[in-house]
């Protein structure tokens, strides 16, 4: 792993001078203040920061879920900024995968149908070999015909992970993927995400506030007050926690 982070040509996602401002006048809130950041291919990056630091906003902007006030966002070769609904839909179908805190599976579909949903929507045929690989990796072979209500939280989140992986997107954005899971189920999901990066070269960007979760990543980017303030390569739970503590004090001092 090289330590020259953020300047490689083959960035899977990139934010340049991104500003995000909500409201105006008195009620104006600046969520992002000129954030520039790159997320390299085949790496697992965690975005951390205290509440209100703008970490979720950054991810939403990167994923094209939210528009930026200034600056540009791109995913692979595609400039996300300025895309219309059709362009965004295409982007989501082909280049982006999502994993949510709430799993967000469709209760009417079986696990298998949920996993294949993005491909079905796009009208694409699944690559059977890759599908099998994904299923093996998440260990859901015998649960494929179950509906979400019949699965545990950990299993549901693994279905959600498989759903994100199966279309081999440029980037998977994971928003607090372990937030609703107990620590064991959470660890399983995180291991599985890390393996998909190591073994299959998937790019993952994960927002979390849990240092243990962040420790699974290759790199952690720290946000505070809408700016990138720090980063860690090959983090451990301890180094992440330390950095967080420092940030908290800074924020308190800043207040």
């Amino acid at each position: 792993m090289t330590a020259t982070v953020g300047r490689q040509a083959q960035a899977a996602a990139r934010a340049s001078e991104v500003w995000k401002v909500y409201g105006s006048g008195e009620a104006q809130v600046i969520a992002l203040r000129g954030v520039s950041c790159e997320f390299e291919q085949s790496r697992f990056t965690a975005i951390m920061g205290p509440s209100g630091s703008g970490k979720s906003t950054l991810m939403h902007c990167l994923a094209g879920l939210d528009s930026v006030t200034r600056g540009t966002v791109s995913i692979g070769e595609t400039t996300v900024t300025g895309l219309g609904d059709a362009g965004l839909t295409k982007l989501r179908r082909e280049q982006v995968g999502f994993i949510f805190q709430q799993f967000n599976l469709l209760p009417t579909l079986t696990a298998k149908e949920n996993i294949l949903l993005p491909l079905s929507i796009a009208g694409r045929k699944p690559d059977q070999a890759w599908f099998d690989t994904v299923i093996e990796t998440v260990g859901l072979r015998d649960r494929l015909d179950h509906r979400p209500a019949q699965l545990s939280g950990g299993q549901q989140q693994r279905v959600a992970c498989a759903r994100a992986l199966v279309s081999r997107p440029q980037v998977i954005f994971a928003d607090e993927p372990t937030g609703n899971l107990d620590s064991r189920a959470g660890a399983e999901v995180l291991k599985f995400l890390r393996n998909s990066v190591r073994e299959h070269g998937q790019t993952i960007v994960m927002v979390t506030h849990d240092p243990t979760a962040a420790a699974y990543a290759d790199r952690v980017v720290f946000l505070a007050d809408g700016q990138i303030v720090s980063e860690l390569i090959e983090p451990t739970a301890e180094t992440v926690l330390d950095t967080m503590k420092k940030l908290d004090t800074q924020v308190e001092v800043g207040d």
Partner: peptide
């Protein structure tokens, strides 16, 4: 609403 959001997020177009 949430489900619709998810579907849109995984690529369901407006027409769809």
């Amino acid at each position: 609403t949430r489900e619709l959001g998810l579907l849109r997020a995984v690529g369901l177009g407006r027409a769809q």
